[in-house]
Amino acid sequence: MRQIILDTETTGLDPAQGHRIVEVACVEMVNRSLTGNHLHLYLNPDRDSDPEALAVHGLTTEFLSNHPRFSEIAHHVCDFVQGAEVIIHNAAFDLKFLDAELKKVGRPAFTTLCGKITDSLLHARELHPGKRNSLDALCERYGISNAHRTLHGALLDSELLAEVWLAMTRGQDALIMDFGGADTQSANGMKMERFDASVLRVLPAGPDETAAHEAYLDILDKAAGKPCVWRAQASE
């Protein structure tokens, strides 16, 4: 499975007001392992950054004027993400900028290039309702050092988000391997027979365990101000 962790920096908050992308970075993971392959580009936006945006990323107009425009590198971005699952923190923000830039150069929307878009911010909010889920907060929560992050940078933020994503989803790997109905060989040459999940024992929760679980969900509901994800899914 190929995944791309993507981040952008921009001149402001809204492409409808003429704001542009000034930096884009993509970090590649394959089968939950960082490959070392990445795409990192600074872009000339042909305008100044808003003071608030400049304070975040520190990329000056003078520095960016020496770099290519999006029209010159659009094909690199499109080729790099082609068919992959793209993971973005607060995806709606980056997507509106990417779509605006692609539209300017006559290319289709970004989502048409990817196999899937995953918003890591929405995933974090489901895991940690009622808590701060910024990239810095998640780094602190999962023990990932971001001491070197004095300014936002697309490549650094993508690398940090990759580590955060692996930590957030560590428990989601399948416990039962699918061997496709056939025996296979392990790395040490040992024969591994097809696993039959029907032999697993099902141990239902007892009354005390069920009551404790419901009490914990009540706490989550109160913290989030709405039904937690387990209850929301159960009501669908």
Score class of each variant (00 low, 15 high):
residue 22 V to L: 02
residue 163 E to M: 13
residue 10 T to V: 08
residue 213 H to P: 00
residue 233 Q to K: 12
residue 225 G to W: 12
residue 91 A to G: 00
residue 163 E to N: 11
residue 144 I to R: 00
residue 174 A to R: 03
residue 38 H to K: 14
residue 19 H to Y: 05
residue 123 H to K: 12
residue 122 L to E: 14
residue 150 T to Y: 04
residue 184 T to H: 03
residue 94 D to W: 02
residue 185 Q to R: 15
residue 215 A to T: 10
residue 166 L to D: 06
residue 37 N to G: 00
residue 51 P to A: 07
residue 62 E to H: 11
residue 118 T to G: 02
residue 50 D to N: 03
residue 23 E to Q: 15
residue 148 H to A: 15
residue 216 Y to Q: 12
residue 38 H to L: 13
residue 189 G to T: 03
residue 145 S to D: 15
residue 158 S to P: 12
residue 137 A to G: 07
residue 213 H to Y: 09
residue 106 G to I: 04
residue 136 D to F: 01
residue 25 A to L: 11
residue 225 G to I: 05
residue 122 L to S: 15
residue 191 K to G: 04
residue 62 E to C: 01
residue 27 V to E: 05
residue 28 E to I: 10
residue 45 P to K: 09
residue 136 D to K: 11
residue 124 A to S: 15
residue 210 T to I: 14
residue 126 E to G: 12
residue 168 M to P: 11
residue 222 K to N: 02
residue 93 F to M: 01
residue 110 F to N: 07
residue 54 L to H: 07
residue 131 K to D: 12
residue 81 V to A: 10
residue 51 P to S: 02
residue 151 L to D: 00
residue 146 N to W: 00
residue 32 R to T: 06
residue 62 E to Q: 14
residue 142 Y to N: 07
residue 16 A to M: 09
residue 105 V to M: 03
residue 149 R to P: 13
residue 118 T to K: 05
residue 104 K to G: 00
residue 199 V to P: 01
residue 33 S to G: 10
residue 16 A to I: 01
residue 67 H to K: 13
residue 227 P to Y: 11
residue 10 T to R: 02
residue 182 A to T: 13
residue 193 E to Y: 13
residue 220 L to A: 10
residue 223 A to R: 11
residue 212 A to P: 05
residue 144 I to H: 02
residue 139 C to P: 09
residue 215 A to Q: 11
residue 55 A to L: 04
residue 225 G to M: 08
residue 216 Y to R: 15
residue 110 F to I: 04
residue 214 E to P: 00
residue 36 G to E: 13
residue 9 E to P: 01
residue 17 Q to C: 12
residue 145 S to Q: 00
residue 34 L to N: 01
residue 101 E to W: 03
residue 176 I to K: 05
residue 82 Q to A: 14
residue 104 K to S: 12
residue 51 P to D: 10
residue 138 L to A: 08
residue 166 L to P: 00
residue 159 E to T: 09
residue 17 Q to H: 05
residue 49 S to M: 08
residue 85 E to M: 12
residue 126 E to N: 12
residue 162 A to W: 03
residue 42 Y to C: 02
residue 36 G to Q: 10
residue 113 L to P: 00
residue 25 A to C: 09
residue 207 P to M: 11
residue 160 L to W: 04
residue 55 A to C: 03
residue 11 T to A: 01
residue 127 L to M: 15
residue 26 C to G: 08
residue 231 R to D: 05
residue 64 L to I: 01
residue 120 S to W: 05
residue 221 D to Y: 08
residue 91 A to V: 03
residue 114 C to A: 15
residue 233 Q to R: 15
residue 204 P to F: 04
residue 194 R to Q: 07
residue 137 A to R: 04
residue 115 G to V: 06
residue 37 N to W: 00
residue 51 P to T: 06
residue 145 S to F: 01
residue 28 E to A: 11
residue 232 A to K: 14
residue 101 E to Y: 08
residue 183 D to T: 04
residue 214 E to A: 12
residue 202 V to A: 14
residue 206 G to R: 11
residue 10 T to H: 03
residue 114 C to V: 15
residue 120 S to M: 07
residue 51 P to V: 06
residue 79 D to K: 07
residue 140 E to M: 06
residue 122 L to R: 15
residue 70 F to Y: 06
residue 109 A to E: 14
residue 70 F to P: 04
residue 122 L to W: 10
residue 28 E to F: 09
residue 189 G to K: 06
